[in-house]
Design a protein around this nucleic acid. Structure first.
Lengths: 121, 121, 121, 121
DNA sequence: GTGGTCTAGACCACG
DNA sequence: GTGGTCTAGACCACC
Protein backbone atom coordinates (compact mmCIF):
# COMPACT_ATOMS: atom_id res chain seq x y z
CA UNK A 1 0.00 0.00 0.00
CA UNK A 2 2.83 2.35 0.86
CA UNK A 3 6.06 2.42 -1.10
CA UNK A 4 9.04 4.49 -0.02
CA UNK A 5 11.55 5.99 -2.42
CA UNK A 6 14.80 6.73 -0.65
CA UNK A 7 16.26 8.44 -3.67
CA UNK A 8 13.41 10.93 -3.43
CA UNK A 9 14.58 14.19 -1.91
CA UNK A 10 11.43 14.61 0.18
CA UNK A 11 11.52 13.40 3.78
CA UNK A 12 10.02 10.01 4.37
CA UNK A 13 7.22 11.21 6.62
CA UNK A 14 6.12 13.54 3.82
CA UNK A 15 6.02 10.71 1.31
CA UNK A 16 3.79 8.77 3.66
CA UNK A 17 1.52 11.75 4.22
CA UNK A 18 1.14 12.32 0.52
CA UNK A 19 0.44 8.68 -0.19
CA UNK A 20 -2.35 8.46 2.39
CA UNK A 21 -3.77 11.80 1.30
CA UNK A 22 -4.00 10.52 -2.26
CA UNK A 23 -5.61 7.28 -1.16
CA UNK A 24 -8.17 9.17 0.89
CA UNK A 25 -8.94 11.80 -1.75
CA UNK A 26 -9.42 9.05 -4.30
CA UNK A 27 -11.78 7.16 -2.03
CA UNK A 28 -9.58 4.09 -1.88
CA UNK A 29 -9.68 4.54 1.85
CA UNK A 30 -13.25 5.20 2.91
CA UNK A 31 -14.58 7.24 5.80
CA UNK A 32 -14.00 5.70 9.24
CA UNK A 33 -11.78 3.00 7.78
CA UNK A 34 -8.90 2.07 10.07
CA UNK A 35 -5.34 2.88 9.09
CA UNK A 36 -2.53 0.45 9.87
CA UNK A 37 -1.21 0.87 13.39
CA UNK A 38 1.89 2.96 13.89
CA UNK A 39 3.94 0.00 15.02
CA UNK A 40 2.75 -2.39 12.35
CA UNK A 41 3.42 0.06 9.52
CA UNK A 42 6.81 0.93 10.99
CA UNK A 43 7.80 -2.71 10.95
CA UNK A 44 6.38 -3.26 7.47
CA UNK A 45 8.39 -0.35 6.07
CA UNK A 46 11.29 -1.05 8.40
CA UNK A 47 11.54 2.52 9.53
CA UNK A 48 11.34 4.28 12.87
CA UNK A 49 7.85 4.42 14.48
CA UNK A 50 8.45 8.09 15.21
CA UNK A 51 8.37 8.73 11.49
CA UNK A 52 4.96 7.11 11.11
CA UNK A 53 3.74 8.99 14.15
CA UNK A 54 4.79 12.22 12.59
CA UNK A 55 3.05 11.42 9.32
CA UNK A 56 -0.18 10.52 11.12
CA UNK A 57 0.09 13.69 13.17
CA UNK A 58 0.40 15.74 10.00
CA UNK A 59 -2.62 13.99 8.48
CA UNK A 60 -4.65 14.62 11.62
CA UNK A 61 -3.74 18.29 11.73
CA UNK A 62 -4.90 18.64 8.13
CA UNK A 63 -8.21 16.96 8.89
CA UNK A 64 -7.69 13.79 6.88
CA UNK A 65 -7.76 11.37 9.79
CA UNK A 66 -8.75 11.31 13.45
CA UNK A 67 -7.12 9.28 16.18
CA UNK A 68 -8.83 7.46 18.99
CA UNK A 69 -6.62 6.74 21.97
CA UNK A 70 -6.03 3.06 22.41
CA UNK A 71 -7.92 2.15 19.26
CA UNK A 72 -6.02 3.56 16.29
CA UNK A 73 -6.25 6.11 13.48
CA UNK A 74 -9.31 6.41 11.22
CA UNK A 75 -10.14 8.14 7.96
CA UNK A 76 -12.11 11.34 8.29
CA UNK A 77 -14.89 11.72 5.74
CA UNK A 78 -15.10 15.51 5.82
CA UNK A 79 -15.84 16.84 2.35
CA UNK A 80 -14.89 20.37 3.30
CA UNK A 81 -11.37 19.23 4.08
CA UNK A 82 -11.11 17.67 0.65
CA UNK A 83 -12.19 20.87 -1.06
CA UNK A 84 -9.68 22.90 0.95
CA UNK A 85 -6.94 20.45 0.07
CA UNK A 86 -7.67 20.65 -3.64
CA UNK A 87 -7.64 24.43 -3.39
CA UNK A 88 -4.23 24.29 -1.75
CA UNK A 89 -2.83 22.01 -4.44
CA UNK A 90 -4.17 24.17 -7.25
CA UNK A 91 -2.62 27.26 -5.68
CA UNK A 92 0.73 25.58 -5.53
CA UNK A 93 0.34 24.43 -9.11
CA UNK A 94 -0.47 27.96 -10.21
CA UNK A 95 2.57 29.25 -8.39
CA UNK A 96 4.80 26.89 -10.31
CA UNK A 97 3.01 27.65 -13.57
CA UNK A 98 3.81 31.30 -13.02
CA UNK A 99 7.49 30.44 -12.59
CA UNK A 100 7.36 28.47 -15.84
CA UNK A 101 5.72 31.36 -17.65
CA UNK A 102 8.41 33.74 -16.40
CA UNK A 103 11.03 31.34 -17.72
CA UNK A 104 9.59 31.79 -21.17
CA UNK A 105 7.46 28.66 -21.48
CA UNK A 106 4.57 29.12 -23.88
CA UNK A 107 0.92 28.40 -23.13
CA UNK A 108 0.87 25.80 -25.87
CA UNK A 109 3.75 23.84 -24.34
CA UNK A 110 1.98 23.71 -21.03
CA UNK A 111 -1.28 22.62 -22.63
CA UNK A 112 0.61 19.83 -24.32
CA UNK A 113 1.80 18.67 -20.89
CA UNK A 114 -1.68 18.71 -19.50
CA UNK A 115 -3.03 16.65 -22.34
CA UNK A 116 -0.33 14.09 -21.89
CA UNK A 117 -1.08 13.78 -18.19
CA UNK A 118 -4.83 13.48 -18.60
CA UNK A 119 -4.67 11.34 -21.71
CA UNK A 120 -2.39 8.78 -20.10
CA UNK A 121 -5.12 6.79 -18.38
CA UNK B 1 17.57 43.16 -8.84
CA UNK B 2 17.62 40.33 -6.34
CA UNK B 3 15.17 40.10 -3.48
CA UNK B 4 15.42 37.50 -0.74
CA UNK B 5 12.45 36.04 1.04
CA UNK B 6 13.49 34.70 4.42
CA UNK B 7 10.05 33.27 5.07
CA UNK B 8 10.54 31.08 2.00
CA UNK B 9 11.46 27.54 2.96
CA UNK B 10 13.93 27.17 0.09
CA UNK B 11 17.57 27.88 0.89
CA UNK B 12 18.85 31.34 0.08
CA UNK B 13 21.31 30.17 -2.53
CA UNK B 14 18.50 28.47 -4.41
CA UNK B 15 16.40 31.62 -4.46
CA UNK B 16 19.34 33.49 -5.94
CA UNK B 17 19.89 30.78 -8.55
CA UNK B 18 16.27 30.84 -9.60
CA UNK B 19 16.15 34.63 -9.78
CA UNK B 20 19.20 34.84 -12.07
CA UNK B 21 17.98 31.91 -14.15
CA UNK B 22 14.73 33.74 -14.78
CA UNK B 23 16.52 36.99 -15.63
CA UNK B 24 18.74 35.15 -18.10
CA UNK B 25 15.98 33.07 -19.68
CA UNK B 26 13.93 36.23 -20.14
CA UNK B 27 16.80 38.04 -21.79
CA UNK B 28 16.95 40.72 -19.11
CA UNK B 29 20.58 39.73 -18.70
CA UNK B 30 22.20 39.41 -22.09
CA UNK B 31 25.01 37.12 -23.23
CA UNK B 32 28.45 38.07 -21.85
CA UNK B 33 26.94 40.61 -19.51
CA UNK B 34 28.74 40.80 -16.19
CA UNK B 35 26.99 39.69 -13.01
CA UNK B 36 27.59 41.53 -9.73
CA UNK B 37 30.78 40.37 -8.04
CA UNK B 38 30.48 37.77 -5.32
CA UNK B 39 31.52 40.19 -2.60
CA UNK B 40 29.50 43.13 -3.85
CA UNK B 41 26.28 41.14 -4.05
CA UNK B 42 26.98 39.61 -0.65
CA UNK B 43 27.20 43.10 0.85
CA UNK B 44 24.13 44.33 -1.03
CA UNK B 45 22.00 41.44 0.24
CA UNK B 46 23.84 41.46 3.57
CA UNK B 47 24.55 37.76 3.43
CA UNK B 48 27.76 35.75 3.42
CA UNK B 49 29.90 35.70 0.25
CA UNK B 50 30.03 31.90 0.45
CA UNK B 51 26.32 31.75 -0.19
CA UNK B 52 26.63 33.85 -3.33
CA UNK B 53 29.59 31.75 -4.41
CA UNK B 54 27.49 28.65 -4.10
CA UNK B 55 24.65 30.14 -6.12
CA UNK B 56 27.07 31.22 -8.86
CA UNK B 57 28.66 27.78 -8.82
CA UNK B 58 25.26 26.18 -9.36
CA UNK B 59 24.48 28.55 -12.23
CA UNK B 60 27.83 27.75 -13.82
CA UNK B 61 27.32 24.01 -13.53
CA UNK B 62 23.98 24.37 -15.26
CA UNK B 63 25.51 26.33 -18.10
CA UNK B 64 23.89 29.70 -17.39
CA UNK B 65 27.05 31.62 -16.57
CA UNK B 66 30.79 31.21 -16.88
CA UNK B 67 33.37 32.54 -14.46
CA UNK B 68 36.77 34.01 -15.21
CA UNK B 69 39.19 34.17 -12.30
CA UNK B 70 40.14 37.68 -11.44
CA UNK B 71 37.48 39.12 -13.73
CA UNK B 72 34.06 38.04 -12.64
CA UNK B 73 31.05 36.01 -13.67
CA UNK B 74 29.39 36.44 -17.05
CA UNK B 75 26.16 35.35 -18.69
CA UNK B 76 26.49 32.42 -21.05
CA UNK B 77 24.55 32.73 -24.31
CA UNK B 78 24.07 29.04 -24.93
CA UNK B 79 20.66 28.36 -26.47
CA UNK B 80 20.95 24.63 -25.90
CA UNK B 81 21.14 25.19 -22.17
CA UNK B 82 17.93 27.19 -22.32
CA UNK B 83 16.10 24.41 -24.16
CA UNK B 84 17.33 21.82 -21.66
CA UNK B 85 16.21 23.99 -18.80
CA UNK B 86 12.71 24.41 -20.20
CA UNK B 87 12.52 20.66 -20.70
CA UNK B 88 13.48 20.13 -17.08
CA UNK B 89 10.86 22.58 -15.84
CA UNK B 90 8.11 21.04 -17.95
CA UNK B 91 8.98 17.59 -16.64
CA UNK B 92 8.70 18.79 -13.08
CA UNK B 93 5.41 20.49 -13.89
CA UNK B 94 4.05 17.30 -15.40
CA UNK B 95 5.10 15.39 -12.31
CA UNK B 96 3.14 17.72 -10.13
CA UNK B 97 0.16 17.69 -12.50
CA UNK B 98 0.10 13.92 -12.20
CA UNK B 99 -0.06 14.21 -8.41
CA UNK B 100 -2.93 16.65 -8.76
CA UNK B 101 -4.78 14.33 -11.08
CA UNK B 102 -4.38 11.46 -8.64
CA UNK B 103 -5.82 13.66 -5.94
CA UNK B 104 -8.97 13.94 -7.99
CA UNK B 105 -8.50 17.32 -9.61
CA UNK B 106 -10.36 17.59 -12.90
CA UNK B 107 -8.89 18.65 -16.22
CA UNK B 108 -11.21 21.64 -16.31
CA UNK B 109 -9.99 22.97 -12.97
CA UNK B 110 -6.42 22.81 -14.13
CA UNK B 111 -7.24 24.55 -17.38
CA UNK B 112 -8.87 27.30 -15.39
CA UNK B 113 -5.58 27.74 -13.50
CA UNK B 114 -3.60 27.95 -16.67
CA UNK B 115 -5.86 30.58 -18.14
CA UNK B 116 -5.58 32.67 -15.03
CA UNK B 117 -1.79 32.50 -15.11
CA UNK B 118 -1.47 33.33 -18.78
CA UNK B 119 -4.29 35.86 -18.80
CA UNK B 120 -2.75 37.87 -15.99
CA UNK B 121 -0.47 39.84 -18.28
CA UNK C 1 40.47 4.10 2.46
CA UNK C 2 40.99 7.75 1.58
CA UNK C 3 44.41 9.35 1.51
CA UNK C 4 44.95 13.07 1.03
CA UNK C 5 47.94 14.55 -0.72
CA UNK C 6 48.47 18.12 0.42
CA UNK C 7 51.26 18.65 -2.05
CA UNK C 8 48.75 17.98 -4.82
CA UNK C 9 47.59 21.20 -6.46
CA UNK C 10 44.02 19.99 -6.78
CA UNK C 11 41.57 21.00 -4.06
CA UNK C 12 40.99 18.49 -1.30
CA UNK C 13 37.31 17.98 -2.10
CA UNK C 14 38.27 17.01 -5.64
CA UNK C 15 40.76 14.41 -4.45
CA UNK C 16 38.05 12.89 -2.30
CA UNK C 17 35.61 12.88 -5.19
CA UNK C 18 38.07 11.18 -7.48
CA UNK C 19 38.99 8.59 -4.89
CA UNK C 20 35.40 7.56 -4.26
CA UNK C 21 34.60 7.64 -7.97
CA UNK C 22 37.43 5.20 -8.58
CA UNK C 23 36.32 2.95 -5.74
CA UNK C 24 32.77 2.90 -7.09
CA UNK C 25 33.74 2.40 -10.72
CA UNK C 26 35.97 -0.47 -9.70
CA UNK C 27 33.22 -2.11 -7.72
CA UNK C 28 35.12 -1.87 -4.45
CA UNK C 29 32.10 -0.03 -3.13
CA UNK C 30 28.95 -1.86 -4.13
CA UNK C 31 25.49 -0.53 -4.87
CA UNK C 32 23.59 0.73 -1.80
CA UNK C 33 26.66 0.39 0.36
CA UNK C 34 26.92 3.13 2.99
CA UNK C 35 29.71 5.69 2.78
CA UNK C 36 31.35 7.01 5.94
CA UNK C 37 29.30 9.79 7.50
CA UNK C 38 30.28 13.37 6.76
CA UNK C 39 31.43 14.03 10.29
CA UNK C 40 33.19 10.71 10.80
CA UNK C 41 35.23 11.05 7.64
CA UNK C 42 36.02 14.66 8.50
CA UNK C 43 37.47 13.56 11.81
CA UNK C 44 39.34 10.64 10.27
CA UNK C 45 41.01 12.89 7.69
CA UNK C 46 41.20 15.75 10.20
CA UNK C 47 39.62 18.20 7.82
CA UNK C 48 36.47 20.30 7.99
CA UNK C 49 33.08 18.58 7.57
CA UNK C 50 32.13 21.20 4.98
CA UNK C 51 34.82 19.90 2.68
CA UNK C 52 33.47 16.35 2.88
CA UNK C 53 29.98 17.69 2.37
CA UNK C 54 31.07 19.38 -0.79
CA UNK C 55 32.75 16.24 -2.09
CA UNK C 56 29.65 14.17 -1.38
CA UNK C 57 27.50 16.82 -3.05
CA UNK C 58 29.64 16.62 -6.17
CA UNK C 59 29.38 12.82 -6.20
CA UNK C 60 25.62 13.02 -5.81
CA UNK C 61 25.25 15.52 -8.65
CA UNK C 62 27.21 13.19 -10.90
CA UNK C 63 24.99 10.27 -10.02
CA UNK C 64 27.52 8.21 -8.09
CA UNK C 65 25.82 8.34 -4.71
CA UNK C 66 22.48 9.33 -3.23
CA UNK C 67 21.94 10.87 0.16
CA UNK C 68 19.14 10.27 2.61
CA UNK C 69 18.69 12.88 5.29
CA UNK C 70 19.20 11.48 8.72
CA UNK C 71 20.55 8.22 7.35
CA UNK C 72 23.67 8.82 5.35
CA UNK C 73 25.12 8.62 1.87
CA UNK C 74 24.86 5.48 -0.26
CA UNK C 75 26.42 4.18 -3.45
CA UNK C 76 24.22 4.44 -6.51
CA UNK C 77 24.25 1.42 -8.80
CA UNK C 78 23.37 3.23 -12.01
CA UNK C 79 25.25 1.71 -14.94
CA UNK C 80 24.37 4.60 -17.23
CA UNK C 81 26.24 6.99 -14.98
CA UNK C 82 29.30 4.79 -15.23
CA UNK C 83 29.21 4.79 -19.04
CA UNK C 84 28.81 8.57 -19.12
CA UNK C 85 31.73 8.95 -16.76
CA UNK C 86 34.01 6.80 -18.89
CA UNK C 87 32.98 8.81 -21.94
CA UNK C 88 33.89 12.02 -20.13
CA UNK C 89 37.29 10.69 -19.11
CA UNK C 90 38.13 9.48 -22.60
CA UNK C 91 37.20 12.86 -24.05
CA UNK C 92 39.53 14.59 -21.64
CA UNK C 93 42.25 12.11 -22.45
CA UNK C 94 41.82 12.72 -26.17
CA UNK C 95 42.01 16.46 -25.57
CA UNK C 96 45.35 16.05 -23.87
CA UNK C 97 46.58 13.63 -26.50
CA UNK C 98 45.85 16.26 -29.11
CA UNK C 99 47.95 18.76 -27.21
CA UNK C 100 50.77 16.24 -27.06
CA UNK C 101 50.52 15.60 -30.77
CA UNK C 102 50.69 19.31 -31.50
CA UNK C 103 53.81 19.50 -29.37
CA UNK C 104 55.45 17.06 -31.73
CA UNK C 105 55.10 13.83 -29.81
CA UNK C 106 55.04 10.81 -32.10
CA UNK C 107 52.41 8.08 -32.13
CA UNK C 108 55.05 5.54 -31.19
CA UNK C 109 56.06 7.39 -28.06
CA UNK C 110 52.49 7.54 -26.89
CA UNK C 111 51.95 3.86 -27.58
CA UNK C 112 55.01 3.11 -25.49
CA UNK C 113 53.37 5.01 -22.60
CA UNK C 114 50.17 3.07 -22.94
CA UNK C 115 51.95 -0.24 -22.87
CA UNK C 116 53.83 0.73 -19.76
CA UNK C 117 50.61 1.70 -18.01
CA UNK C 118 48.71 -1.41 -18.97
CA UNK C 119 51.65 -3.74 -18.56
CA UNK C 120 52.22 -2.66 -14.98
CA UNK C 121 49.54 -5.01 -13.74
CA UNK D 1 48.52 34.00 -33.57
CA UNK D 2 47.21 33.82 -30.02
CA UNK D 3 43.59 33.16 -29.26
CA UNK D 4 42.19 33.34 -25.75
CA UNK D 5 39.31 31.26 -24.49
CA UNK D 6 37.71 32.85 -21.47
CA UNK D 7 35.40 29.93 -20.92
CA UNK D 8 38.52 27.80 -20.46
CA UNK D 9 39.16 27.10 -16.80
CA UNK D 10 42.92 27.56 -17.12
CA UNK D 11 44.34 30.98 -16.25
CA UNK D 12 45.01 33.24 -19.19
CA UNK D 13 48.77 33.41 -18.70
CA UNK D 14 48.85 29.63 -18.89
CA UNK D 15 46.95 29.57 -22.15
CA UNK D 16 49.49 31.98 -23.59
CA UNK D 17 52.40 29.92 -22.33
CA UNK D 18 50.99 26.76 -23.83
CA UNK D 19 50.28 28.42 -27.14
CA UNK D 20 53.83 29.73 -27.51
CA UNK D 21 55.29 26.47 -26.32
CA UNK D 22 53.38 24.64 -29.02
CA UNK D 23 54.43 27.14 -31.69
CA UNK D 24 58.05 26.76 -30.66
CA UNK D 25 58.03 22.97 -30.36
CA UNK D 26 56.41 22.76 -33.79
CA UNK D 27 59.05 25.02 -35.31
CA UNK D 28 56.53 27.65 -36.36
CA UNK D 29 58.60 30.05 -34.32
CA UNK D 30 62.25 29.51 -35.15
CA UNK D 31 65.36 29.97 -33.02
CA UNK D 32 66.21 33.60 -32.24
CA UNK D 33 62.96 34.82 -33.74
CA UNK D 34 61.50 37.81 -31.88
CA UNK D 35 58.25 37.45 -29.94
CA UNK D 36 55.69 40.25 -29.91
CA UNK D 37 56.51 42.88 -27.32
CA UNK D 38 54.72 42.66 -23.99
CA UNK D 39 52.84 45.88 -24.56
CA UNK D 40 51.88 45.17 -28.15
CA UNK D 41 50.53 41.72 -27.34
CA UNK D 42 48.70 43.06 -24.30
CA UNK D 43 46.94 45.61 -26.47
CA UNK D 44 46.19 43.08 -29.20
CA UNK D 45 44.57 40.69 -26.73
CA UNK D 46 43.18 43.57 -24.68
CA UNK D 47 44.45 42.14 -21.43
CA UNK D 48 46.75 43.40 -18.71
CA UNK D 49 50.49 43.63 -19.63
CA UNK D 50 51.29 41.95 -16.33
CA UNK D 51 49.64 38.82 -17.62
CA UNK D 52 51.85 38.75 -20.72
CA UNK D 53 54.86 39.46 -18.56
CA UNK D 54 54.05 36.51 -16.41
CA UNK D 55 53.62 34.22 -19.40
CA UNK D 56 56.96 35.30 -20.85
CA UNK D 57 58.58 34.83 -17.47
CA UNK D 58 57.27 31.29 -17.30
CA UNK D 59 58.54 30.56 -20.81
CA UNK D 60 61.95 31.94 -19.91
CA UNK D 61 62.18 29.90 -16.74
CA UNK D 62 61.42 26.78 -18.74
CA UNK D 63 64.11 27.57 -21.29
CA UNK D 64 61.89 28.28 -24.28
CA UNK D 65 62.77 31.93 -24.70
CA UNK D 66 65.40 34.37 -23.53
CA UNK D 67 64.94 38.06 -22.91
CA UNK D 68 67.32 40.88 -23.76
CA UNK D 69 66.80 44.05 -21.77
CA UNK D 70 65.55 46.85 -23.93
CA UNK D 71 65.32 44.67 -27.03
CA UNK D 72 62.64 42.08 -26.43
CA UNK D 73 62.07 38.36 -26.04
CA UNK D 74 63.49 35.75 -28.40
CA UNK D 75 62.99 32.07 -29.09
CA UNK D 76 65.60 29.78 -27.61
CA UNK D 77 66.73 26.97 -29.92
CA UNK D 78 67.88 24.57 -27.25
CA UNK D 79 67.06 21.00 -28.29
CA UNK D 80 67.65 19.67 -24.81
CA UNK D 81 64.86 21.84 -23.49
CA UNK D 82 62.52 20.41 -26.08
CA UNK D 83 63.36 16.85 -25.13
CA UNK D 84 62.81 17.62 -21.43
CA UNK D 85 59.49 19.22 -22.22
CA UNK D 86 58.26 16.24 -24.18
CA UNK D 87 59.33 13.99 -21.34
CA UNK D 88 57.30 16.10 -18.92
CA UNK D 89 54.23 15.95 -21.12
CA UNK D 90 54.46 12.21 -21.56
CA UNK D 91 54.76 11.74 -17.82
CA UNK D 92 51.62 13.75 -17.25
CA UNK D 93 49.84 11.79 -19.94
CA UNK D 94 50.87 8.51 -18.34
CA UNK D 95 49.59 9.76 -15.01
CA UNK D 96 46.19 10.42 -16.48
CA UNK D 97 46.20 7.14 -18.36
CA UNK D 98 46.75 5.39 -15.06
CA UNK D 99 43.71 7.14 -13.63
CA UNK D 100 41.68 6.03 -16.63
CA UNK D 101 42.85 2.46 -16.22
CA UNK D 102 41.86 2.48 -12.55
CA UNK D 103 38.42 3.71 -13.57
CA UNK D 104 37.99 0.57 -15.62
CA UNK D 105 38.79 1.84 -19.10
CA UNK D 106 40.09 -0.90 -21.35
CA UNK D 107 43.30 -0.79 -23.36
CA UNK D 108 41.29 -1.11 -26.56
CA UNK D 109 39.20 1.96 -25.82
CA UNK D 110 42.30 4.00 -25.23
CA UNK D 111 43.90 2.75 -28.42
CA UNK D 112 40.77 3.79 -30.28
CA UNK D 113 41.23 7.32 -28.89
CA UNK D 114 44.83 7.45 -30.00
CA UNK D 115 43.99 6.38 -33.47
CA UNK D 116 41.33 9.03 -33.76
CA UNK D 117 43.74 11.72 -32.62
CA UNK D 118 46.54 10.70 -34.94
CA UNK D 119 44.28 9.87 -37.85
CA UNK D 120 42.55 13.23 -37.77
CA UNK D 121 45.11 15.10 -39.86
C1' DG E 1 39.82 44.16 -7.52
C1' DT E 2 38.16 39.27 -8.90
C1' DG E 3 36.83 34.08 -8.02
C1' DG E 4 38.03 29.63 -5.36
C1' DT E 5 39.01 26.94 -1.36
C1' DC E 6 39.13 25.92 3.40
C1' DT E 7 38.31 26.21 8.56
C1' DA E 8 35.60 26.78 12.71
C1' DG E 9 31.53 26.84 14.61
C1' DA E 10 26.57 27.23 14.58
C1' DC E 11 21.65 25.94 13.72
C1' DC E 12 17.96 23.25 11.53
C1' DA E 13 15.33 19.15 9.84
C1' DC E 14 15.12 14.24 9.76
C1' DG E 15 15.05 9.51 11.81
C1' DG F 1 23.22 10.25 14.99
C1' DT F 2 22.52 11.83 10.07
C1' DG F 3 22.76 15.42 6.07
C1' DG F 4 22.01 20.51 4.70
C1' DT F 5 22.60 25.38 5.13
C1' DC F 6 24.66 29.49 6.67
C1' DT F 7 28.05 32.82 8.88
C1' DA F 8 32.53 34.76 9.87
C1' DG F 9 36.87 35.06 8.70
C1' DA F 10 41.02 33.54 6.43
C1' DC F 11 44.32 32.53 2.57
C1' DC F 12 45.52 31.78 -2.27
C1' DA F 13 45.79 32.58 -7.36
C1' DC F 14 44.74 35.63 -11.00
C1' DC F 15 44.33 40.13 -13.41
Amino acid sequence: MIVLDYSDKRPIYEQIVERFRTLILNGVLEADEKLPSVRALAIELSINPNTIQRAYGELERNGFIYSVKGRGNFVCGNQETFAQEKEKMLNELMQYMKTCKEAGIALEEMEECMKRVYGEV
